[in-house]
Nucleic acid binder design. Structure first.
Lengths: 253, 253
DNA sequence: GAGGCGGCTTGATGTTCATCAAATCTCGTC
DNA sequence: GACGAGATTTGATGAACATCAAGCCGCCTC
C-alpha cells in the first residue's frame, strides 16, 4: 500500500516537486497510496468529487468524457503523468472519467494535503502553476486540432508525433488499440480504418499495430504539422512534467 | 498610460490577487499599462513571445487559433478576465491570437514581474494555480462540447447558457455578431443560420440579435444541458475569476 | 484444432456539414 | 433618403462523417 523507496524517488523527480522542501514533500506523500490496477479499471467517474491527485507511474490511462450516451477520449496518458490536478486544486468534481488501459501503477496523493502544501510552500505552488499551465496548453492544442483539422489530417499528425516521440525510426508501434485512437482523434473506428486506407496513398503502411511512414515528406505535405498545435518532442531522458513538455525546444530541461 | 485609482481597485478585486500582500500587488502593478484599443485590434498573434499578462477590464476580446488558412474562435472573453496566463507563467509563445471585438480597456502586466511574484508570494501563486485550474476546466468543457455534440445541440446549449448568464429573462441579446458565434461553435455562418432555423421548431424566435426562448422545456429536451459541460452560472455581483466560476454552485463566493 | 469472442475492415447508405452562389437585410455615410 | 460594404439568409451541391451490416482476422479457451 505505501511507497517503496524506488517509487518515492520517481515521484520526487516529478517536475511538480522540483525544488520543494523536504517538509512539503513529506507532508504530501505521508498519506499516499501506491496501487496497482488491472486494465479496464475505472479510477474515477465524471461528476465524482475528487479526493486524490493521481500520478501514473507505470501503465496507460485514458481520460474520457460522456454526454448523451456518447463517449469520447480526451487524452491518453503515459508515465510519468499527473491527472485531474485541476479538480484537486479547486476541490471540485471531476469533469472527466479516468480509466486504466493497461495494468497500471498509480500513486494517489491526498488532495487536502496538496492544497495545504500549495498555500504554504511557494516553490510547490509555483511548480503547480507551471504544471497546470502545461496541461492548459495541451488542451488548447487539442481543441485547435479538433476544430481546425479533418480526420485524415488529425491521423497524419498523430502518426508523425508518435514517430518522433518513439525515437524517429521509420517504423513504430501504436501504443494502444485503434478503437481508442479513433475516440481520441474524434472519429469512429470505421472512419479511422478508412483514414488509414487514405494515408496509404501518402506512403503509410499499416500492419496491425505496426506503422511505417515510408515517405515522410509526402505525409508531411498532407499533415502540415504546426508547432502551435503539435508538440513534436523527442523522448528525453529525464522524467518530466507537462510544463517542460511545453517549454521544449526553447528551454528544454 | 498608467492606472487610475478606480482601475487599481478593479484589478485588486480580481480573484487572482485575492489575499496577496500589498508588496506583491505593488510589484506586479508597478510597470503596468492601461490601454484602450479600438474594435478589431490584434493584441497578440499566435506564435509571438508573450511579455505581458492581459486583463480585460472593459469591452470584448476573442481568442482565436489558425491552421492552414483556417481560423477558429477558441473563446470570447468578457470583463473582468485575464488571458494568456498560461503562456505568461511558462514564458512561452502564445498558442492563440487575441483580438478585440469591441473597443476595450486592457491592462497589461509585466510577465517577468508576475513570474517573480509567483515565486515569492505563496498567496499569489496559490491564486494563480486556482485561476489556471479554472481556465483548464473551461477548456475541458469546450472540448467535450465540441467532440460530443452536434451543431444544433451546441447552439441550443449556448442559448440556454446565455439566457441564464444574462439574468434568465425569456428574451435576451446575443453579445456579438453571429459570424463570431459560428466560429466559436465550430461551424460556418451559413450553418449557424440553418441551426437557428432548426431551433425555430423548438420554440426559439430570432429577431436580429434578439433571441427569445419561448418554450424552455422543449429546448432543453433537445439541448440536454449537463453541468459537466455547461456552466450555467447566473450573473453574480462580485467580480470573479475563472476559479470561482468553476466552483459554482458548490462554493460560490 | 474447433469454436468463439472481440477487434478490425469493408461496403452500402443516410446524415451532417462545408462550399459556392446569389438574394436580402442592416447600418452607417453622404 | 439613396448608396455601399458587410452581415445574414437561402438554395443547390458536394465532401466528410456516422451508422448499419457483414465479413475477416487474430487470439484465446477448451
Amino acid at each position: 500500500m505505501s511507497m517503496r523507496v524506488v517509487d518515492v524517488e520517481r515521484v520526487k523527480d516529478l517536475a511538480l516537486f522540483s525544488g520543494v522542501s523536504d517538509e512539503t514533500f513529506s507532508a504530501v506523500t505521508a498519506g499516499a497510496f501506491l496501487q496497482k490496477f488491472p486494465a479496464g479499471t475505472t479510477l474515477l467517474h465524471e461528476g465524482d468529487p475528487v479526493d486524490f491527485l493521481y500520478v501514473l507511474l507505470d501503465g496507460l490511462v485514458e481520460l474520457e468524457g460522456t454526454w448523451n450516451d456518447k463517449e469520447t477520449t480526451l487524452a491518453v496518458l503515459r508515465p510519468v503523468s499527473t491527472f485531474i490536478f485541476a479538480a484537486v486544486a479547486l476541490d471540485a468534481d471531476a469533469l472527466m472519467s479516468a480509466r486504466t488501459v493497461e495494468r497500471s501503477d498509480i500513486l494517489m496523493l491526498s488532495g487536502e494535503a496538496l492544497r495545504r502544501a500549495m498555500q504554504t510552500d511557494p516553490r510547490f505552488s509555483y511548480a503547480a502553476t507551471l504544471e497546470l499551465a502545461g496541461c492548459y496548453r495541451g488542451l488548447v492544442r487539442a481543441l485547435k486540432n479538433q476544430k481546425l483539422r479533418g480526420g485524415a489530417e488529425r491521423l497524419a499528425n498523430y502518426l508523425i508525433t508518435q514517430k518522433v516521440r518513439q525515437g524517429g525510426a521509420e517504423t513504430f508501434t501504436l501504443p494502444h488499440e485503434k478503437r481508442l485512437l479513433a475516440s481520441l482523434l474524434g472519429m469512429t473506428p470505421e472512419n479511422l480504418s478508412r483514414a488509414f486506407a487514405t494515408l496509404t496513398g501518402y506512403g503509410v503502411v499499416v500492419n496491425g499495430p505496426e506503422v511505417t511512414i515510408a515517405r515522410p515528406v509526402v505525409l508531411e505535405r498532407l499533415a502540415k504539422p504546426d508547432p502551435l498545435i503539435d508538440n513534436h518532442q523527442p523522448p528525453s531522458a529525464a522524467p518530466i512534467g507537462k510544463a517542460e513538455r511545453e517549454l521544449w525546444p526553447a528551454r528544454a530541461s
